[in-house]
Design a protein around this nucleic acid. Structure first.
Lengths: 140, 140
DNA sequence: AATAAAACCTATCGCATTACTCGGATAAGC
DNA sequence: GCTTATCCGAGTAATGCGATAGGTTTTATT
């Protein structure tokens, strides 16, 4: 039950942008240095976030990235889902259908109920925390 | 955020033993067939569960495995932790210490708080469900 | 106009882990 | 002594992760 660095770095980078929200484009390089992430690797991650519409980019000198929405409107769950795909402790949860390709007896599978509860619990936590919440935390 | 098959198969096997609790040793082969798990692979998993004290084994013909405790006394969380190690969405949670080898700024790391909440949430769900609960579910 | 700073893009690659398989050794009931 | 089991250690194919490499385009600044 590990998060990959994609999710972790993604949240760290978005948190960094949230701290500088409203200051114009923030260069990827500065984010990489502050958050201690490989610059080239972070580039790929920012590409994913841009394609998903959470950040916009400005090319050329003095360019960089900025959030497309207010920090309060972006949750940690939004970021994790974009970076890692939907939360699903087991593959059989990837379709809503109880009868699916991953498990024939999904309908009457007892353990499936456990994974559903785990998934919902994780989503509940991740969706309830916004980037603005993290910025608030920082001030203390 | 995926569970490995170790955890999934481990829970499935233990649930199977719980269904047959009190019937004497259950052969690994029969568990493997019912739960659709590779017999040889399940063998390794049962070894882990045995060393952790959750099952006892009887060798030789008519041998097999049985739970060492009542199904109500073993939680899904117990099994997952033995099969997959402690729940820790990120490595920096592997030590309780806020100052640790994984992250220098653990003490004042904002995102760390998110992962702590996720971990606690997962543990809460897994620890609250016992094998007996799963058996109850089956009857419906 | 030249330069430098930045985003953008595609490919590759070592490494670790996962999910097994294989081949036996040991133990116990019949 | 045969069969049915658990026990044990090694090996292995496939996968994904976490980068690295090497470029191209775009744009502000000088």
């Amino acid at each position: 039950m590990k998060l990959s660095t994609k999710g972790r770095y993604g949240v760290a980078a978005m948190y960094d942008l949230a701290l500088h929200y409203g200051e114009g484009p923030i260069s990827l390089k500065s984010v990489a240095i502050r958050q201690e992430i490989s610059e080239h690797y972070l580039e790929q991650l920012m590409g994913t976030l841009r394609k998903s519409g959470y950040v916009k980019s400005v090319r050329g000198a003095q360019g960089g990235y900025a959030l497309t929405k207010e920090p309060s409107q972006i949750s940690v769950g939004d970021i994790i889902k974009v970076m890692e795909g939907p939360i699903a402790p087991v593959d059989c949860l990837l379709t809503d259908d109880t009868a699916n390709a991953y498990c024939q007896r999904a309908g009457d599978c007892v353990t499936r109920g456990v994974w559903v509860k785990v998934r919902d619990s994780i989503n509940g936590v991740l969706d309830s925390i916004s980037l603005a919440d993290l910025c608030e935390e920082e001030k203390k």
